[in-house]
Computed example of a mutant assay.
Amino acid sequence: MRVERLSRDKIRFFLSLDDLMERGIEKEDMWRDIPKVHELFNDMMEQAYQELGFEIAGPVAVEVFALPAQGMVVVVTRGRTPHPSDFDELDDDDMYELEISLEESDQVVFCMNDFEDLVQAAIRLKPMLPEGSRVYAYRDRYYLVLDTDYELRTLQAAIAVLAEFGEASTTTEHILQEYGRTIWEKDAVKQITQYFAP
């Protein structure tokens, strides 16, 4: 489980499939009000406090993005910070209120900080994924988008390669098309290696 701060009141967790399996949680369980999901959320909040000093009390919005073959991203946004006197009226079960939304993507989107990372990833991906990929530039970063109609083993191998050069992103292709710049709209891996591989 990895956590990072996005803003003063927002953090993001990346939960791998292994993180979920260790706790006996399926993706569908994230919707359910069951003890092991509460336990996972408490562990996440403990880690956020330990690593980032991020504390929650009161309303919390939780967005869960299920990523194909790689786990999920959980974005936690803190609402109003209660006044200390509010705690007198709360018992332990009311320390925070959760509002959960779940989205599932049918694409794999990875973000790379620089063009060289994109080139190196493409070189390693070419034998696996010769076609069916797109690249966008958005907010000074590069986004490689793969459809998930490959067989699962191929997709998992591609994700493992991509994780070496970038990070899974919850930015949708629609946002990239609308606000980013299209660099390659088809067969990006093939084109990158054709022009930039030694």
Rank of each mutant, 00 (worst) to 15 (best):
29 D>G: 07
29 D>M: 06
31 W>F: 14
32 R>M: 10
32 R>F: 06
35 P>K: 03
35 P>V: 04
42 N>H: 12
44 M>D: 01
44 M>Y: 04
46 E>C: 11
46 E>M: 15
56 I>S: 10
56 I>L: 15
56 I>H: 07
58 G>H: 13
59 P>K: 13
62 V>W: 03
65 F>M: 13
65 F>H: 13
68 P>C: 00
72 M>S: 06
75 V>R: 08
76 V>M: 13
76 V>P: 08
77 T>A: 14
79 G>D: 05
80 R>A: 13
81 T>N: 13
82 P>V: 01
83 H>M: 02
84 P>T: 06
84 P>I: 07
85 S>K: 15
85 S>R: 14
85 S>I: 13
86 D>Q: 15
88 D>I: 11
88 D>T: 08
90 L>E: 05
91 D>V: 11
94 D>N: 14
95 M>I: 06
100 I>P: 00
101 S>V: 13
103 E>Y: 13
104 E>R: 11
114 D>E: 14
115 F>N: 03
117 D>H: 03
121 A>P: 09
123 I>D: 07
124 R>P: 01
125 L>I: 06
129 L>D: 00
129 L>S: 00
133 S>T: 09
134 R>G: 01
135 V>S: 00
137 A>W: 04
142 Y>S: 10
145 V>S: 09
146 L>I: 01
148 T>H: 02
149 D>H: 10
150 Y>V: 02
154 T>H: 04
154 T>F: 04
154 T>V: 09
155 L>F: 02
155 L>H: 01
155 L>Y: 00
155 L>E: 03
158 A>N: 00
158 A>V: 00
160 A>D: 09
167 E>S: 15
167 E>W: 11
169 S>G: 02
